[in-house]
């Protein structure tokens, strides 16, 4: 996936309600090679209208099962609706995909196709 984006010179910026510290922990833990932005005050999330007011979150516990962090205490939090926005060099929005089911993310093939259609002719 990353190599497909690299091929078209597309860099990924990911923003969530996590604080700078939480985002740094997340980036290190999952070995993420992209820019993570922190929006703990939900300024950008509200500006873009991607606020999920009562989303279920499981707070992270300190133990893991088969190498997977276990989160067992559910609570309601405000967080971002999973949304992907593809932007060209001039800041123009070329493609948007939003998930109506928080469990699901933009399909990789869909992202790949959107990038190819957007930049294919000029890549």
């Amino acid at each position: 996936m990353k190599s497909d984006l690299d091929a078209y010179g597309v860099s990924v910026i990911a923003l969530s309600k996590d604080s700078v510290v939480d985002a740094a922990v997340h980036k290190r833990r999952d070995g993420l090679n992209l820019t993570l932005l922190a929006d703990p005050e939900l300024k950008v999330i509200r500006q873009y209208g991607v606020e999920h007011h009562k989303a279920v979150e499981f707070s992270t516990m300190s133990f893991t099962l088969f190498g997977m962090p276990l989160a067992l205490v559910p609570s309601f939090k405000v967080m971002a609706i999973p949304t992907s926005i593809l932007v060209d060099e001039r800041g123009k929005i070329l493609w948007i995909d939003q998930s109506d089911d928080y469990r699901l993310r933009s399909d990789e093939d869909m992202v790949r196709q959107a990038v190819r259609e957007a930049f294919g002719g000029q890549g």
Binding site: I13, D22, M79, I85, L86
Partner: peptide, 9 residues
């Protein structure tokens, strides 16, 4: 060129 992703955290 950028892919801006909003995610849950």
């Amino acid at each position: 060129r950028t892919l801006l992703k909003f995610f849950r955290g």
